[in-house]
Simulated assay, not measured.
Amino acid sequence: MKKSHQHILQERQLTYEFVSDNSTMFSVESMCKTLDISSSAYYEWKKDIPSQRKIAWEKDTRLVLKEYNESKCRYGSHKITAVLNQNGVSTSRNRVARIMKRNGIKSCICKSYKPQTTRSDHGKRVALNHLNREFKTNEPCKVWVSDLTYVPTEHGWLYLTAIMDLFDHSIVGWSMSEDMTAENTVMKAWEMAKRNRKPKSERLFHSDQGVRYVAEELKKRI
């Protein structure tokens, strides 16, 4: 039966691959002669095969462009590298940076929005500064200090409130909330601090003059 052209090409491809796989053990010329193929034809086939380095580069380029586009052009080389490594792709920041430079892309950094966590224009009565920068105390539960900050996440802002005991600088109470109400921020942290330290005497509670810290509900609770 006469072989089809497609079948002949497939056999030749397999033969070339056999020669390539065994080229470290035998000479290419001797294998080509034994298998009755042209060595020059084999080298032409070899030249047309993309190198493993080129294949890897093209693969990494596709992955980098994918993460860049999915981030709406916000991610730079540091962030893209971190995401790829988390997804099991082993690459370096320098390699990602080279890929981005070669493709003419860079992080589009927008001015980030920062929520205002301290509002002191509330018009409410505030306490005097009794702490006066005396940040050392020799007894636990004598001085607690507190502050509120924000944490950006993929799903929006979270607000972290912490209370520290200046005796050992331990965080004795904290809360994480999606809003900045006194009930969900300072008061939850206050209740945790009381449970953890179980104070038995009066103590000084120091904070900024933000609206959460002068809330009437918090004053009653304290």
Rank of each mutant, 00 (worst) to 15 (best):
Q6K: 13
Q6T: 14
I8Y: 12
I8G: 03
L9Y: 11
R12L: 15
V19L: 09
T24I: 03
F26V: 04
S27V: 00
V28H: 03
K33C: 02
T34M: 06
L35A: 10
S39H: 14
S40I: 02
A41Q: 09
A41P: 10
Q52I: 11
A56K: 13
E58I: 07
T61V: 04
L65H: 10
S71T: 04
K72I: 03
G76E: 12
A82D: 05
L84T: 06
G88W: 06
S90K: 14
T91E: 00
R93D: 09
N94H: 12
R95M: 05
K101D: 04
K101R: 14
R102E: 11
N103W: 12
K106H: 11
S107A: 15
K111G: 05
S112C: 06
Q116A: 13
Q116V: 14
T118M: 10
T118D: 09
R119A: 06
S120A: 15
R125L: 15
A127D: 12
N129V: 05
R133V: 00
E134G: 04
E134C: 13
E134K: 13
E134P: 00
F135T: 07
K136M: 12
E139K: 14
P140D: 14
C141W: 04
W144N: 05
V145S: 13
T149V: 09
H155Q: 13
H155T: 15
Y159C: 11
L160T: 10
A162R: 06
M164E: 11
D165W: 08
D165K: 05
L166F: 06
H169L: 10
S170D: 05
S170C: 07
D179M: 05
M180L: 08
T181V: 00
E183D: 10
A189S: 07
W190G: 02
E191G: 04
M192Q: 12
A193H: 02
R203Q: 06
Q209F: 11
G210C: 02
R212E: 15
Y213D: 11
I222Y: 11
